[in-house]
Computed example of a mutant assay.
Amino acid sequence: MPETPPRDMTVAELRAALRDLPDDNPVRFAVNPLFPMSHGIATLTTTSDPTATAVAYLADSCTSTATPRPVAITLGWHEPATAPSRRRRTAR
C-alpha cells in the first residue's frame, strides 16, 4: 500500500510550534532530504488556491547553509550513525 503524503501544516499548528521561542529567534526552512540545506525566510505573502482557500507562502531570503545533521535525523532524512573507530597507523 502506498504511503500517504504528509499534509500541509496549518497556520495554527505553526503558531503553536513557535509559541515558546523568543520573538527575535531566526526561522529557517529545511529542504532537500538527499542533500539537506536550510534557507532563511525573507517574507510571507498570502493568496487563494483554486478552491478559494487562503494559503500562506514563505519567500526564501537567498541565504542558505547546510542543515545540521541532528535536524536531518529528527526529520527522518538521515539515519543516526556513529563514525567507525579508527585504528592508529603504525610504521612497519
Rank of each mutant, 00 (worst) to 15 (best):
P2D: 13
P2M: 12
E3P: 07
E3T: 15
T4R: 14
P5L: 09
P5S: 02
P6V: 01
P6E: 01
P6Q: 01
P6M: 01
R7Q: 14
R7G: 03
R7Y: 02
R7E: 13
D8W: 08
M9F: 13
M9W: 14
T10D: 08
V11W: 06
V11G: 02
A12R: 15
A12M: 06
E13H: 06
E13N: 08
L14V: 14
L14Y: 06
L14N: 07
R15Y: 10
A16T: 08
A17I: 01
A17S: 14
A17R: 13
R19H: 11
R19D: 13
D20G: 12
L21P: 00
D24C: 04
D24A: 12
N25T: 07
P26C: 06
P26L: 05
P26G: 04
P26M: 05
P26Y: 05
V27C: 03
V27M: 08
F29D: 04
A30Y: 07
V31E: 07
V31Y: 10
N32M: 04
N32S: 11
N32G: 05
P33K: 10
L34Y: 05
L34I: 03
L34M: 08
F35N: 12
P36D: 10
M37F: 07
M37C: 05
S38A: 15
S38H: 03
H39V: 05
H39P: 00
G40I: 01
G40A: 11
T43N: 14
T45K: 11
T45Q: 07
T45I: 04
T46G: 02
T47K: 10
T47L: 07
D49Q: 04
P50Q: 06
A54F: 04
A54C: 08
V55H: 04
V55P: 04
Y57N: 06
Y57H: 14
Y57E: 09
L58G: 14
L58T: 08
A59W: 00
A59D: 00
A59R: 12
S61R: 12
C62F: 12
T63I: 13
T63F: 12
S64K: 15
T65G: 06
T65E: 15
A66D: 12
A66L: 13
P68S: 04
R69Q: 10
R69P: 01
R69G: 00
P70Y: 03
V71F: 01
V71M: 06
T74I: 04
T74M: 11
L75Q: 03
G76P: 05
G76I: 10
G76D: 05
G76Q: 06
W77F: 05
W77E: 03
H78T: 07
H78I: 02
E79T: 07
E79L: 14
P80V: 11
A81P: 00
T82S: 14
P84G: 01
P84H: 01
P84W: 00
S85N: 11
S85K: 15
R86K: 15
R89Y: 07
R89N: 10
A91Y: 10
A91M: 08
A91R: 15
R92D: 07
R92M: 01
